[in-house]
Computed example of a mutant assay.
Amino acid sequence: MAALLQPDMRSARLALALDSGAISLPTEGRIAVFRPRSGDDLSDLPKDRVTVITGFRPDHDWFTARGYACATAVEGAFAAALVCLPRAKAEARALLAAACAALPHGAPVVVDGQKTDGVDAVYKDLRGRVAVSEAMAKAHGKIFSFPAGNALTDWAGTVAEVEGFVTAPGVFSADGPDRGSALLAAALPAKFPSRVVDLGAGWGYLSRHILTRAGVKELHLVEAELAALDCARQNVTDDRAQFHWADATTWQVPHLAGSVVCNPPFHTGRDADPALGLAFLRAAAKMLAPDGSLWVVWNRHLPYDPALRALFREIEDVGGDGAFRVTRASYPVRR
């Protein structure tokens, strides 16, 4: 699920910068907009020239539904770029390098971001490398530009190998397995039903563990972030694995599953959002067979107990520690 900016934050900065002449865009040619989020208002840009570039499926679908051309990677020539800064520093740098690589030398790269997403640090880092414009501050963020060139080639995103797994900049837990997933992996049963879903599979850590258990004939990896799913394709090479680039909260399983394994996210941007994890729980319940089970790890402070008890007939804690609970929820309630 995508994090919504407060209404018109990005639009307010972009409109001010364009109207004041602080930032100018070429009158012709395509404009690449990297990583805007669902709810972002791009109406200050000529829609027929904009291509939204994002690998996050909910954002991709949101802009597609509103008539924007969308792509998961740079394709063809562009005359300018707008980079909407993400939270992760490594991903932000990779996007800026990708924007430069997509443009002719000297073409404008516009950078927009919230202070909470590190725009000040990015601006400071860029000042030592490129001829960056003065930053305009508005709506708790900043916008500025610089000419494309070769100065950021060392910022280009590269995959890394961590504990035998391939990861990429910006994916969840890129530095290695997170504590919750490790606890869930340790609590998984010795045998699974034949059809299993890894909901929000990330780069495939849990999937690899699932495939070591007896009984599994079909494993569906469902992941909204394409960069993570591409890593999972390298990390999970078993023929039983099927990969789905999809919003886990809306994806429909081809056939009801015997088990769902899930470490649901609970943040949108920097803010905790229990509704996101609850949407994962509801989606899992719908894709399970009547006698199926959900294996889920969650932070103890999250209010998931009432939802789990409303969605399943049997609830049992099967692992965890002081910060996390690992729960098996069985027999989904059919309404």
Rank of each mutant, 00 (worst) to 15 (best):
A2I: 02
A2M: 01
S11A: 15
R13I: 13
L16F: 08
S20T: 15
G21M: 03
I23D: 03
S24M: 15
L25T: 09
E28K: 15
E28I: 10
R30E: 13
G39L: 03
D40F: 12
S43Y: 12
D44R: 14
D48T: 11
I53R: 09
F56A: 12
F56Y: 14
F56M: 08
W62N: 09
Y68G: 06
V74E: 01
E75R: 13
L82P: 06
V83W: 09
R87G: 10
R87F: 12
R87A: 15
A88R: 13
K89H: 07
A98M: 10
A99P: 09
C100R: 07
A102S: 15
L103N: 04
D112E: 14
G113H: 09
V119A: 08
V122W: 09
R127P: 14
R127T: 09
G128F: 06
V130D: 13
V132N: 07
V132G: 13
A135E: 08
A137G: 08
H140W: 08
A160L: 04
E161M: 01
G164N: 00
V171A: 03
F172T: 10
S173V: 07
A174R: 05
P177D: 00
R179F: 11
L183K: 03
F192N: 03
F192S: 09
G200T: 05
R208P: 01
R208W: 03
H209V: 13
T212P: 01
A214T: 12
G215S: 07
V216C: 02
E218T: 10
E218L: 09
H220P: 01
L221M: 02
V222W: 01
V222P: 07
L229I: 07
D230A: 15
Q234C: 05
Q234P: 04
V236N: 01
V236Q: 00
T237A: 00
W245D: 01
D247R: 01
V253P: 10
G258H: 12
V261I: 11
H267C: 10
T268A: 15
G269Y: 12
R270S: 13
L276D: 08
G277E: 06
L278Y: 05
L278E: 10
L278C: 03
A284L: 00
K286F: 12
V297I: 05
H301P: 07
H301C: 00
L302A: 11
A307M: 07
A307F: 06
R309K: 15
L311H: 06
L311S: 11
E314S: 06
D317Y: 12
V318L: 02
V318P: 10
G319W: 00
A323G: 08
T327L: 02
V333W: 05
